[in-house]
Design a protein around this nucleic acid. Structure first.
Lengths: 329, 329
DNA sequence: CTGAAAGCGCTAACAC
DNA sequence: GTGTTAGCGCTTTCAG
């Protein structure tokens, strides 16, 4: 593979001039520039970014870490980030990590001097946060406290809207299929808000109204099915169910229908994420979500240093589709 | 960030010894090894892989290039590859490229000295194939001819099975919604096989029985819907439809149902890819696909040099679900 | 078993 | 405008 030195020789200039032409930075006489560019084009020279990264002590990589890949929501996030990443010349690497996999993934990420990390899985152990800070990586949702406030998702408005809507249609007994382990759930504002709302309306919240599960160890669709099956087995009565993500909601609906229940006549189902195919199902799935495009854009802008350090707030929106139209008998 | 030299100093050894401990290669006295390891653990030293890659002239990255991201099929592929990649310590970078985006993506990939490239989009221009070969990258489906034979998917058996099945249920008029541009379609064996089979059975193939479209410029779901709407508008009669991927088939089914047609009673629909949620729809979507796990495994094994150079053949399988059960009136 | 020397291909900082 | 000099942090090679 031809390198800078050879290009320089062929163009009768020094390495530095080639560098200037390639990077577009610094002064180069127009005719020199053209001569060098010609050699570059003719030889098909492609700069070695590994060397460039070594010197500049950073790379153009953004790591995105997710707990599972079966969920199309993450694809949407990746797509949105990629669109924005292209503008800054960033490249995306995807990692799947949950629990014990996290350390090795973080070591990999640090040892590659990524420019930023967007985290959708568990919070990082402090030592890795420190390592990431040392390499100058920008972190999104990496740790507790300050860090996690960067780009926070506000579900309260949309959840209130959805719950008001359900109540207005006569729903009283509402459940929340968290589906995930308590450890994971503890990083989330949705279950707490749900409880708070129920209390506020004077609606009783009983043991078992919040259903935990082993997502993301098992995939969301399966976890949703299991939750519904369990409820059917117990013969529990309820008017509406929130599921922590759309895939879980879809699994839940499927099991309910297999069990002879009608959605939304017997119970409303509402998911989170607004995955693109939500409206391809029967009934169309009602959901709550922030705009993925916006989220991706904000993430990348923040990593590129083009957003305020403070951390933007993204408000989720309620999409009232068929599955939410509970009918009080 | 602490580097190898410092670790060496703290452990009273040379850089080289630290390298040996880190890499696990070469002889190191057990007590030296332990002493060095202790320093590594205490300092939290994380090697700089960028420097390592520069010297060794390669990286542990695999690039996967797809035409679009809205399709969950690619997520499945990524997931399967990632599972296998982990074993060899590879990291996956995802790129979306179609037409004019391809050159810049390939330059990026080459300049980062990737270990391998798995291609799901258009074939690469020869100059980039050359560049990739120069950096020693292993290519899967990168170019025409030899290269594309590495890991080829054989659809003929499954397609024959599916078409035999449809004919046995009385289907005569079958269409193929290729949905993509002719350029893209020309890399594919499915439309040719479809035509060949029809000819073989003496079934007439008319102009317009193969429906082209602008996928992947528009997403598959939308393209599938458009195709169905167009057919409804034309009032065309048909017994069965193949769609080039499941998302397209889902869009097609949705538009058909909106137009008052019943699937599979009025027409069978069969997709390709076997995306995980195929069975969550109504009717459950019949499909043709190879095992994604297997495909991912083969790709990574090949890049790691653990597979025969020849290129494995993967045979697709027919999954006869509800949407295929056409009923002859 | 361990270390010293010589770069990998590029860029930063300064001279000319 | 252009060139020279030093490395970036690591591995390779060869000498002890």
């Amino acid at each position: 593979m031809i390198d800078r030195k050879e290009v320089a020789k062929l163009a009768n200039v020094s390495c530095m001039t080639v560098t200037r032409v390639v990077s577009g930075k610094g002064y180069v006489a127009e005719k020199t520039r053209r001569r060098v560019q010609k050699v570059i084009d003719e030889t098909g020279y492609i700069p070695n970014k590994i060397a460039a990264n070594l010197v500049s002590r950073k790379s153009n990589r953004i790591a995105i870490i997710v707990p599972e890949l079966a969920n199309p929501y993450y694809l949407q996030v990746v797509e949105a980030m990629m669109a924005q990443a292209k503008k800054y010349g960033y490249v995306l690497s995807i990692f799947k990590a949950y629990e014990e996999e996290l350390p090795e993934v973080l070591e990999e990420v640090i040892s590659n001097r990524v420019a930023g990390v967007v985290n959708y899985t568990l919070r990082f152990p402090p030592r890795y946060i420190k390592g990431l800070e040392e390499i100058g990586a920008r972190l999104i949702r990496a740790g507790e406290g300050k860090e996690s406030r960067k780009l926070s998702l506000d579900y309260s408005g949309a959840m209130r809207e959805a719950m008001d809507f359900l109540i207005s249609r006569g729903a009283r007994k509402m459940l929340f299929v968290a589906g995930l382990t308590e450890q994971f759930a503890s990083y989330d504002s949705r279950v707490p808000f749900f409880c708070e709302y129920m209390r506020e309306k004077g609606l009783r919240l009983e043991a078992g109204d919040i259903l935990y599960g082993d997502y993301p160890l098992r995939d969301a669709y399966a976890v949703g099915q299991s939750a519904a099956e369990e409820l059917l087995r117990q013969g529990r009565r309820f008017d509406a169910v929130f599921c922590i993500n759309d895939m879980m909601a879809l699994g839940f609906m499927r099991a309910m229908k297999k069990g002879g229940r009608r959605i939304p006549e017997d119970a409303a189902v509402i998911g989170f994420d607004n995955i693109r195919m939500s409206d391809a199902f029967e009934p169309e799935l009602a959901t709550i979500a922030a705009d993925t495009e916006e989220e991706g854009r904000l993430c990348v802008d923040f990593i590129a240093g083009r957003a305020e350090q403070k951390g933007a707030k993204l408000a989720a929106v309620f999409y009232p589709r068929q599955s939410a139209f509970f009918v009080k008998r």
